[in-house]
Design a protein around this nucleic acid. Structure first.
Lengths: 214, 214
DNA sequence: TAGATTGTTAATCGATTAACAATC
DNA sequence: TAGATTGTTAATCGATTAACAATC
């Protein structure tokens, strides 16, 4: 039995299906077809079918996929069914906003504690602990933390990453707008708002230029 | 003279180059080669060269690109040189974190005001106004706002988008984890944390599975 | 001149889309 | 049965990478 590698693009679409399936309004249907899903989300129906084929063991012609099992299948595939403990480094505004976001539970993510060079608070509003950086090591080792979230300013990000990796973290969610150098086997997922802004900004530039032409 | 369309993938890499160029440490070099840039950012050097060719009017063999003009060129291409005014809908934690982030100036983005169905505050810590939703229309029309940022819960997002579009907004930065239906010509850029989480989660699943095999 | 580096043209790779057969 | 829908195989498309010529 071989592991099939699933592309990042597919991985990014799965949670979109998932959240839609969970939020279907009004009379919740027992089954849902790829056609319906696709048109609701503005995607191609073949693409939806191919994606679903990866996680599900099939729908039925003329009927579609069972909504509930589809939800289960996607959640299981994404590993949302067992909780991942994570630590967050950098308890600034963004860090605190993430700590306070209760929606992550749904994705099996539990931000257990925050760490900061100079903590300004001892606990977040939600009661989660904020430790000085010196406490990072024992905490991560004790709880076998595999995921780290970096919300420090750019210049501190690489060091934060190094320390996380040193204590066994295997996946890093990086909100600092810098490239992180990491050894093989460690995954860095960049949440770089600047990239989104670039797309938006260029679109607006084009809009404005066009308007001026009129 | 024809407009050349630049792909989203390129657009997303440009700010990465930009921030690196701005942050080069120690003895800031006059010039920088694509080779150096590529290795610093862990990218292919041909890719870097191709990307730079889009915005710059060329580097010099054996020397590279002039760092300063490259910065200017990218900023101009991305439209960071003239400021875009934006409004934000949903003054919750995330919304306030975004309002408070001063780094956006650098990208030519100015979040002028926030709007909320039931504002809990009148001004943010930074002194930016928070209005009730009823004030959205005149504000946007008066200031000719072209960009909207949506940080409301999922179920309010579509309505927020509709209202923004109604008052002339052309680009929407959507932090709500739902698909937005918009007419042609309006750009929606989704900042969906769930998609990043999916990538991280699947990576960790694989890690754990492998470890158990040992 | 020699060599590093640019810029371009061609080849590869992967992902999306289209076409079609299978099925309830 | 007929038709909607699934799932798969082939074709297209676009982006990345490799090869090479141009240049300072």
């Amino acid at each position: 039995m071989e592991e099939k590698k699933v592309s990042k693009s597919v991985l990014k679409r799965l949670p979109v299906y998932l959240s839609y399936l969970k939020s279907i309004p009004d009379p919740v249907p027992e089954n849902i077809s790829a056609t319906t899903l696709a048109s609701a989300l503005g995607m191609g129906e073949v693409q939806v079918r191919k994606d679903l084929a990866i996680v599900s063991n099939g729908g039925r012609p003329k009927i579609g996929y069972c909504r509930e099992s589809l939800i289960d299948d996607i959640e299981q595939f994404l590993g949302y069914d067992n909780t991942t403990g994570a630590v967050l480094i950098g308890a600034g505004k963004l860090g605190q906003a993430l700590m306070g976001y209760s929606g992550f539970e749904e994705y099996g993510l539990d931000i257990m504690a925050a760490f900061d060079l100079r903590p300004s608070i001892e606990r977040t509003e939600e009661g989660k602990p904020v430790y000085p950086m010196t406490e990072l090591d024992w905490f991560c080792r004790l709880h076998k933390v595999l995921m780290g979230i970096i919300t420090v300013p750019a210049k501190g990000a690489q060091e934060a990453a190094d320390r996380l990796i040193a204590v066994g973290v295997k996946a890093i969610w990086n909100f600092a707008p810098v490239h992180l150098d990491v050894p093989e086997g460690i995954l860095v997922q960049n949440e770089n708002m600047a990239t989104s802004l670039a797309v938006l900004s260029v679109h607006l530039q084009a809009q404005i230029k066009e308007k001026n032409k009129e």
